[in-house]
Every structure is written in structure tokens, then in C-alpha cells.
Amino acid sequence: MYALNYVKAKSVKEAAGFLARNPEAKLLSGGMTLLPTLKARLARPTHLVDIGHLAELRKIAVKGGRLLVGAGARHHEVATSAVVKKAIPALAGLAGEIGDPQVRNRGTIGGSVANNDPAADYPAAVLGLAATVVTTKREIAADRFFQGLFTTALEDGEIIVRIEFPLPKRAAYSKFHHPASGYAMAGVFIAQTAGGVRVAVTGAGPGAFRWTAAEAALANGLKPAALEGVKLDSREFNNDMHADREYRANLVRVMAKRALAKLSGKK
């Protein structure tokens, strides 16, 4: 590992203060993306400010019709939490499909959402469930939060405190794993929410996005057949050594149908 300066924050407030004084410092939570990024010298922050151990960020609870998940909750904790499994089983299932067991024991929901990797799973759930990202400064609706490749609405020094998920009537996630990395080649999260059906896609494009044509097509019933011929603009889709655009576009359709099948109770 290259030289670095490590700071263990005693509280979120202290971490925020440190970031305000040191604009080139970076937050460290689980470190599952950041530490490999440092090893590859893709980033060279002046300091790592560790917030991964803070109990104030680890709470999981249901309150006022919303599931509140602290930013420091690890994937394993979300996957196995009785509260999450009862409130939004699709979210627990999604968390249990991230990476591998060792990664799930370290990686956090806040880290994943802040990083906004185009193939990460959590952004699909946050967007699909119309969640709210609560930070040290404000509340940000999912529709405004994700802004494309590794880009979010977060400002410098702003720290995610928790994610608030309104409880959906039903929700399901289906993902095609990259066989080596475990990342989503395409993942589709479908939720029947108070505001209607939402379909969020990850892995396919430069960032998670809503497939609005599919949402419209499913408005009158969550039936796989409704997706036949629905327009999917794949011009901006990732086109790389793992899969080309057309293949990813097809995967999105297949994953959407599988998610619908899960919703209807069929495997």
C-alpha cells in the first residue's frame, strides 16, 4: 500500500469538521472500493477519515412507514437483519448478493451509494424504491441523487448518514452477476410504490437509471408480457470486454422479467 494518513473519527460531526478543513481528504467506511483504488493509485487523498466503526451510523429501524438504514450498515447486516427482511425482503436479498461473503462483512450501504459504481447493486434499490438519502446537510431524493458514472449530488464534505426507504407494496430485484467480480452485468429492481410502479436498472448504463417506458407498460399490471416490445434506449449502455450494448440491453429485459416472476411468486 502507498503512504497515507489515517484519521479515526470519533463522530460524524468530527469527520465532517475534518473534511471541511481538509478538502482533499476522503471518507473511509468499509474500504472495499477505496482501498483497492488507493493500491491502484487511482486516488491519492491527503487523509483517510475512518467512519466505518461509528455506531451512530449502524442503526436499522422502521419508523413512520419507512425503513431507515444507517450509512455504516454492512451488506451482511442488511442481508440478515430481521427488520429489513420483514420490511423490504428484496432489499435484504439484494444485499446478500453483493460481492462475496468477505466483502459483505466490510462493505457498507453508504459507501456503495456514495461511490455510485455503475455496476453496484444498491443504487438500483435506492432509485427503485424512491428512497431518500439523508446527509449531514440535507435530504436528497433518489431521483436527484444519482448523476451518472461515479457521480452523485453529494457536495464536498457532505456525509451520508442514512438511507430512508418508503415501504413498497411489493418489490423484487434480479441480477445477472459478472461471474468473476460479482458485480451486476445488469440488475433490475422493480417496486410497486405509493407513487406507482418504478423500474430501476443498474450495471447496463453509465449509472443506475429508471426505465420509464417499462414503468408505463407495467402500470396496468405487473405482467412479464407487458414488457414485450417496450422501448429501451441502449445507445449509452456500457460496451466493453464483458458484454456489448445489445447483450446488456437483452439482459435488462430478461432481468426485468425475472424480477416480475419473483413478484408473482414464480421462480
Binding site: Y6, L28, M32, L35, D50, D100, Q102, V103, N105, R106
Partner: peptide, 21 residues
Amino acid sequence: GCCTVHVNGRAVKSCTMLAAQ
């Protein structure tokens, strides 16, 4: 995963964790 150890009872990859953590 060759570097897997348990930290507070959970398996982790010790090449992707700082001693300070």
C-alpha cells in the same frame, strides 16, 4: 481470499483492511 482472517468474528480479506481499522 488467501488472506482471509476473522475480525470480531467475521471473515474479511486482510489485504483490504488497514491495521489501523
